[in-house]
Design a binder for these strands. Structure first.
Lengths: 263, 263
DNA sequence: ACACATTCATGCATATAATGCAATAGTATA
DNA sequence: TATACTATTGCATTATATGCATGAATGTGT
């Protein structure tokens, strides 16, 4: 009586109590960071006692912690500690960070590093622009491919079939009135990116956002990540200086690729 | 036949397979970020098949991932994603970040936020100095209390009995020739911190390190975190300008305390 | 190149340990 | 104070995690 339908994972041979625990952890999102046992129970469709015991275990190991004021559970410190191990171990991140710092230093832009992951991308590193620092962590966030500069770069490195598969699976949700929602328009931009070696995004994910990105290759020459800059370039709009900025980003991305062993 | 002796946790009523999974995750540290099944098996003292299956489950959920080159496992992307949820949900971090940015902006110092946790402290936020950016993530790292500025601030807010307990449990390991290894000397500095409202650390944790810290209070007036600045102050050594910098840090910390509801 | 040694995954049988149920304890609400 | 809701815990059951042993796969040394 496996509940493969529910979790969507084929749990053949997997340790189920562990799967359940992970399903519980997955309930804690940016939208719902505080949950009570009953909230979790409703979401994951297990019995309260089961949830209660798994939560107790995760609390004991500090993967969750109880907010004594609200009585709700939230993600615990162990998650943060482990994440620092993971990030500091990422050679991609470590090789790219100096470049990100340097881009901010020289041009006052924000700099981002993101990697492809199952038809989406997530950020591995980010350096804030001194002019418009963010108040939230971007590292770890997942974004769609069709509306971000890095996303388009990653798409450009795929075959047309792979791109079609991503669009089929993920759709092209709209975030602003600039978001590309037509596959044909997206393909045009991807073609352009393939020709020029960089991609752009102006207000497609959030209004006033602006990004220019280039691909980073691993030692096999495969594009596995993207580097982008955002915000203002020397105080002026990215769009105005697109070609100049693009050449800078391409060069930085190539430098990182080299560090990773791509010749 | 509970193996409480091994893990050190009283596993009464806890889901054991989950405990084992967490014990496995805990093997992945900054020193040993890449592990094979046998490595893990040796460390946690379980059977290979058990480890193999738990690892398979964690890999399916992306808490671990297999590095195809080395055949070793490493922490997976889910850890990073969850961590971003946890960090962005931390009100302490979110309230403090603007202050950290501002300190860097105005004075060119690095700025750090750390919280007390079981006789140690760990970093919740960090803003790099533009002059000496770090190449690794500090957020999530755990440091001892006796050799860091924030640590001393946190100690100062404890009773002498609590301090003694921390020293008894954690010891006073030496990192540089400046590290305080005598409880009496530490207590002197703690007394000073209690009088002046700030603490300092010059080369006690790493050579050339320099930090000045003040305490952050929650709405109950309890010191629960510390704010510190590090590096150079307007290009000059912190030690030279200790009092001036201290008053700035104290003020910033008070501002954050206010935001948290401490009057 | 071949044998040997390691490492890792998996089928199967067993007993342990996870879990559902139900009762209890603990909180909030009216 | 009574009522409703939420969380925890004892107990019995069987589902499920796990140890053993096999086999595949990879690496190592001669």
């Amino acid at each position: 009586m496996l509940n493969e339908e529910k979790s969507g994972k084929s749990s053949a041979g997997l340790t189920q109590s562990l799967c359940k625990a992970f399903d519980i952890l997955a309930c804690f999102t940016a939208e719902t960071p505080l949950l009570r046992i009953t909230d979790i129970t409703r979401r994951v469709g297990m019995t309260q006692s089961n949830v209660s015991r798994l939560v107790a275990t995760m609390t004991a190991y500090e993967y969750l912690e109880k907010d004594e004021d609200s009585g709700c559970y939230q993600l615990g410190r162990k998650i943060i500690t482990l994440s620092s191990v993971a990030l500091n171990h990422s050679s991609l991140r470590c090789q790219a960070l100096p470049e990100l710092f340097s881009l901010e230093q020289k041009y006052g832009v924000g700099a981002n590093l993101a990697v492809l992951d199952h038809g989406s991308m997530y950020y591995l590193a980010h350096v804030d622009s001194r002019n418009s620092p963010r108040m939230y962590t971007m590292v770890g966030n997942t974004n769609p491919l069709h509306c971000t500069a890095i996303g388009k770069v990653l798409l450009s490195a795929m075959t047309d079939e792979e791109i079609a598969a991503v669009i089929r699976e993920k759709g092209m949700p709209s975030f602003t009135y600039n978001t590309i929602t037509s596959p044909d328009v997206l393909m045009e931009q991807i073609e352009r990116c393939r020709r020029l070696g960089y991609s752009v995004e102006y207000g497609e994910h959030a209004l006033n956002s602006a990004c220019i990105a280039a691909g980073i290759r691993n030692r096999n020459g495969k594009v596995i990540a993207g580097l982008s800059v955002s915000g203002k370039f020397l105080g002026e709009s990215l769009q105005e200086h697109e070609e100049r900025v693009a050449s800078i980003v391409i060069e930085s991305a190539a430098l990182i690729s080299n560090k990773l062993g791509c010749i």
